[in-house]
Design a protein around this nucleic acid. Structure first.
Lengths: 207, 207
DNA sequence: GTCTATACAAAGATAGAC
DNA sequence: GTCTATCTTTGTATAGAC
């Protein structure tokens, strides 16, 4: 076994533990996760977690940052893109969230938990100082409202887009259980929404 | 001290512990709550929790049922009311949720956690067998869609109402922190939404 | 009914062998 | 790098005094 194999094996183990941690933390949250769960899920021993990541808390921080990036970090660029119209931004946001959440359905609840249990200072670091009101997105919306002689806070538009797109994923287990809907049928509904939500948003904000 | 005083005092203590438990469980979830937190929050000793409620789990079940009732149980009647129109039902749902969530902002995240960590069997008991598709609400919506020659699943309407109303409360800490908005300003936005959401819903479903 | 003290179980972290 | 065994901390439940 040479150096290359050693490194490859080492990275693989670390990566496998991290992926296992991502799955468990994302579905059970910090307090609900036992390091023993992560060990079992990864197929490795409990002690390896400490060997690679020093502590449960340190490992959680890594997963948390990745999930925050996925949920919030990725959309900052879209909101501030000078080259796209407001309508295009709406399409992009909805598409991004639906596609991302179909692969990572646990993210919304994970983030909501985080946000409800942690000091707000947490977000300063991840997101920079960008407030929604300062984005190109908000400016474009305000211009459109001006033309129509309406005054609606840009946050309403933003909340509407995210609410309509993300909440159905967060509440999926409840909706499925309560309505006897299969995973496939639910996915189908979500794909319909990917088309419908941008249309809805446009007529809503046109009133 | 007579019997009446004894009973009054006893109920009061039990009630205080339950209220403390409600606050702590609702904000931190089951796994995140230590019985010591509840004891401290209530002002009583750790042992009293066991004396009145037997165990952490039993106490949690009580709080869980109350929160589920608040979040889901209360709206079944509205959805199945033959005496109200679809538009009136929409108004009622939005008003109910906004008013209830301004008092209990932690409920949505609590419920979402529950739903993501528990077997779906849990809901059978609380909600009876009512699926959204079987309600008067759904029937009225289908009739309206028929007139307009449209075919949209009634669940979309239901998800839209709940999403637009509930999600902004669930994500409030994030929105506030990220946009430098005070509690008062945020409440103001929510009150605006109480008026706006029914209007939005009506134009959305009219396309 | 309420408290103090403590038993008992679960979970995180680490030492040391291989 | 990986494992087994063990220490330590934290959390739940209960016994017994008042």
């Amino acid at each position: 076994m040479n150096d290359k194999d050693n490194i490859a094996k080492s990275e693989s183990t670390e990566q496998k533990i991290k992926e296992a941690a991502r799955r468990v933390f994302t579905s059970k949250g910090y307090a609900g996760t036992r390091t023993r769960d992560i060990a079992e899920e990864s197929g490795y021993n409990l002690a390896l977690i400490n060997y690679y990541f020093r502590s449960k808390e340190k490992l959680f921080e890594i997963i948390m940052m990745e999930n925050l990036q996925l949920f919030i970090g990725s959309i900052i660029g879209m909101l501030n893109n000078e080259a796209t119209s407001l309508d295009e931004k709406i399409d992009q946001l909805v598409t991004y969230y639906v596609d991302m959440l179909m692969v990572n359905p646990g993210i919304p609840v994970f983030i909501l938990n985080l946000v409800n249990n942690n000091p707000s200072a947490l977000f300063e670091g991840v997101l920079g100082g960008n407030t929604v009101s300062d984005t190109v997105f908000a400016t474009q919306f305000k211009e459109q409202m001006k033309k129509k002689k309406l005054t609606i806070h840009p946050l309403h538009l933003f909340m509407n887009i995210v609410s309509l797109t993300v909440f159905p994923f967060a509440s999926a287990p409840m909706i499925k259980a309560k309505n006897g809907i299969s995973d496939e049928e639910y996915n189908q509904l979500m794909l319909e929404r990917k088309i419908l939500i941008p249309k809805w948003i446009k007529v809503m904000m046109d009133m």
